[in-house]
C-alpha cells in the first residue's frame, strides 16, 4: 500500500474507533463501560496519530501516543477510585443514579421500560464433571453463593 492509502485507511479506522467509543460513552450507563469507551476513543486518536507520524516521517506522533497511554493509566487510577466511591455510595454503577445537577423543579429521570432479563443469559458456565465428586462443605457454600 502506498503511504497515502495507509494514511487514509488508518484515519478511517481511527475515526471509526473514536465514533464507536463516543457512541458507547453516550449510550451506556455503566460507569466502567463508559470509561472503557473513553479509552476506546483514546485508542482511535492514537491510531490516527501513529498514521500521521508515519506519513510525515515524524516521531511526534508516537511520542504523543506514549503520553496518551500514560495519561490513560493515570485516568484509570483516579477514575476507577471515583467510580468505586460512587458505587459504595449508591450501591450500583449506574450513572443515571446521579441527577443532582438538574434544574430545581425538574422531575427526576426515570426508566419506564426495563427489559426483562433473558433466562438464557442467566445460564452460567459449568465445568464438565470429572474425577470424584468433591466433598461438599455447607459453610463454604454459604459464602460461595455466586460463581
Amino acid at each position: 500500500m502506498s503511504e497515502l492509502t495507509l494514511l487514509y485507511n488508518y484515519l478511517l479506522i481511527g475515526a471509526l474507533l473514536f465514533a464507536i467509543g463516543l457512541v458507547g460513552f453516550l449510550v451506556r450507563r455503566n460507569m466502567i463501560v463508559m470509561f472503557l469507551c473513553a479509552e476506546l476513543m483514546l485508542q482511535g486518536v492514537s491510531v490516527s496519530l501513529i498514521a500521521w507520524g508515519r506519513f510525515h516521517q515524524d516521531w511526534g506522533g508516537q511520542m504523543l501516543v506514549v503520553f496518551i497511554i500514560t495519561v490513560a493509566a493515570c485516568e484509570a487510577g483516579v477514575a476507577l477510585a471515583m467510580v468505586l466511591l460512587l458505587t459504595q455510595k449508591s450501591g450500583k454503577l449506574d450513572i443515571a443514579f446521579w441527577q443532582e445537577l438538574r434544574d430545581p423543579g425538574q422531575s427526576r429521570f426515570m426508566d419506564h421500560e426495563v427489559p426483562e432479563e433473558n433466562i438464557a443469559e442467566k445460564v452460567w458456565p459449568t465445568l464438565t464433571k470429572a474425577g470424584r465428586v468433591p466433598v461438599r462443605n455447607p459453610e463454604e457454600e454459604m459464602h460461595r453463593n455466586r460463581v
Partner: peptide
Amino acid sequence: VIMLAQPDGHASYDRISWG
C-alpha cells in the same frame, strides 16, 4: 473493579440506555 463494584455480574441498567 468490575468484580468489586458489580459482584452480580449483570444489572438492568446494562441492558438499556437512558432516553
